[in-house]
């Protein structure tokens, strides 16, 4: 957990400047993390415009709460990740108002445009179904470690686990996915 306490000094400098009113410093932070946060959101939301809107909202939300970040003791990227994750959950809540939190968290990017659906291969559909049947935490570790290709250390910090626990989690998630894909193949 000590990893959580570590902060990138450059990030901290930028954050302090942004808090003091240097808005360009926040612009730098935005550029630094835009791709990462956008890709995470995009991995969960298929509609590009929605993903873009959500990304902007996340950064705005983070700016508004920047004063409070100092007390968190988390890396800024992890702070952004948590905001993005909550924003996605809110998005699915709005999309399907009756959906409980768990369901919202389990959502894989199912909302696809017609064109996207047409070009989806049968294999991809099978994978998507198998992935959506996994628990939220298995989906998340696969999303972060495999789809976003984040290093284990970052994934561990973002998910609030040790690196060892994250490796085991990834191993179990892949095994579970393989089993489900195997079953679906057999059918």
């Amino acid at each position: 957990m000590s990893e959580k306490k570590q902060k990138d000094p450059k990030d901290i400098d930028l954050i302090q400047r942004a808090i003091a009113g240097d808005l360009d410093a926040f612009g730098d932070l935005y550029e630094r993390y835009l791709a990462l946060i956008y890709r995470y959101i995009r991995s969960r939301i298929a509609i590009e415009e929605d993903a873009e809107d959500l990304t902007e909202k996340v950064f705005l939300r983070v700016f508004q709460a920047l004063d409070r970040y100092q007390d968190q003791g988390w890396r800024f990227s992890a702070y952004l990740y948590r905001s993005a994750r909550n924003a996605v959950i809110d998005y699915y809540r709005q999309y399907k108002k009756t959906a409980p939190l768990e369901d919202a968290d389990r959502q894989v990017a199912r909302i696809r445009t017609l064109d996207e659906t047409l070009i989806h291969s049968e294999r991809m559909q099978l994978l998507e179904e198998a992935l959506s049947e996994l628990s939220a935490v298995y989906q998340e570790v696969i999303r972060l470690r495999i789809l976003l290709e984040l290093p284990t250390e970052t994934v561990a910090i973002w998910m609030g686990r040790s690196q060892g626990a994250t490796r085991v989690l990834l191993h179990r998630a892949l095994n579970a996915l393989r089993k489900r894909v195997g079953k679906k193949d057999a059918q």
Binding site: R39, R123, E149
Partner: peptide, 21 residues
């Protein structure tokens, strides 16, 4: 590899980057 090929999220476009900033 299958997962990455199927679901790897796209990076933000350059237009979006500039506009969004």
């Amino acid at each position: 590899i299958e997962l990455t090929n199927s679901f790897k999220p796209e990076s933000p476009t350059e237009i979006f980057r500039k506009k969004a900033k």
